Amino acid sequence: MANTVDRAKQEGSDTWITTKVKADMLTEKGIPGGDIKVETSQGVVSLSSDIAVTCSQKEEAVRITKNIEGVRSVLADGLKAE
């Protein structure tokens, strides 16, 4: 039973992290926040995009994500830098 409760708490936390990352990226000037996909699993955030981003946009997206409470690590291999 405890495992189910822990999983539910983690899924709520992951959902919160994903929502917060998306919101912070949308408000940041110079980042195509609407084009960056965000997925979170157990505090690990994966960033990806179908469009190319600049190196500085990629670095900024990673920085924003790392500053969010609950984020354990950031995987940005899915962001294709120009």
Rank of each mutant, 00 (worst) to 15 (best):
A2V: 13
A2T: 10
N3R: 09
N3K: 09
T4K: 12
T4W: 03
T4H: 07
T4Y: 05
V5C: 04
D6W: 03
D6A: 13
D6C: 00
R7F: 03
R7V: 08
A8T: 12
A8D: 01
Q10H: 01
E11L: 01
G12S: 12
G12D: 13
G12T: 12
G12A: 13
S13I: 06
D14V: 03
D14T: 03
T15G: 13
T15A: 15
W16N: 05
T18P: 04
T18I: 02
T18F: 04
T18A: 15
T19A: 15
T19R: 10
K20C: 02
V21F: 08
V21C: 06
K22P: 02
D24Q: 12
D24H: 04
M25I: 07
L26C: 05
L26N: 12
T27A: 13
E28N: 10
E28Q: 15
K29F: 08
G30L: 09
G30Q: 11
I31A: 10
P32S: 06
G33W: 01
G33E: 04
G33V: 07
G33M: 07
G33Q: 01
G34H: 01
G34L: 02
G34Y: 01
D35A: 11
I36V: 10
K37H: 13
K37Q: 14
K37I: 06
K37M: 03
V38M: 10
E39C: 02
T40R: 02
S41C: 04
Q42F: 06
Q42R: 14
Q42K: 15
Q42W: 09
Q42A: 15
G43A: 09
V44E: 13
V45Q: 06
V45W: 12
V45S: 10
V45R: 10
S46D: 11
L47V: 10
L47I: 08
D50C: 05
I51Q: 12
I51Y: 07
I51G: 01
I51N: 10
A52I: 04
V53Q: 07
V53F: 08
T54W: 03
C55E: 11
C55F: 00
C55R: 01
C55M: 00
S56W: 06
S56D: 15
Q57K: 04
Q57S: 07
K58V: 06
E59Q: 10
E59V: 07
E59N: 14
E60V: 00
A61Y: 01
A61V: 00
A61D: 02
V62G: 01
V62N: 00
R63F: 02
R63L: 00
I64Y: 02
I64R: 04
I64P: 06
I64K: 03
I64Q: 06
T65V: 09
T65E: 08
T65N: 11
K66L: 14
K66N: 14
K66S: 15
N67R: 11
N67H: 08
N67M: 09
I68Y: 10
E69H: 06
E69K: 12
G70H: 10
G70F: 05
V71Q: 11
V71T: 06
R72E: 13
R72P: 00
R72V: 15
R72D: 13
S73F: 08
V74L: 04
V74N: 06
L75R: 08
L75I: 14
A76D: 15
A76L: 03
D77T: 12
D77S: 11
G78Q: 03
G78P: 05
G78L: 03
L79Q: 00
L79D: 05
K80A: 06
A81C: 14
A81Y: 01
E82V: 12
E82T: 12
E82M: 08
E82D: 14
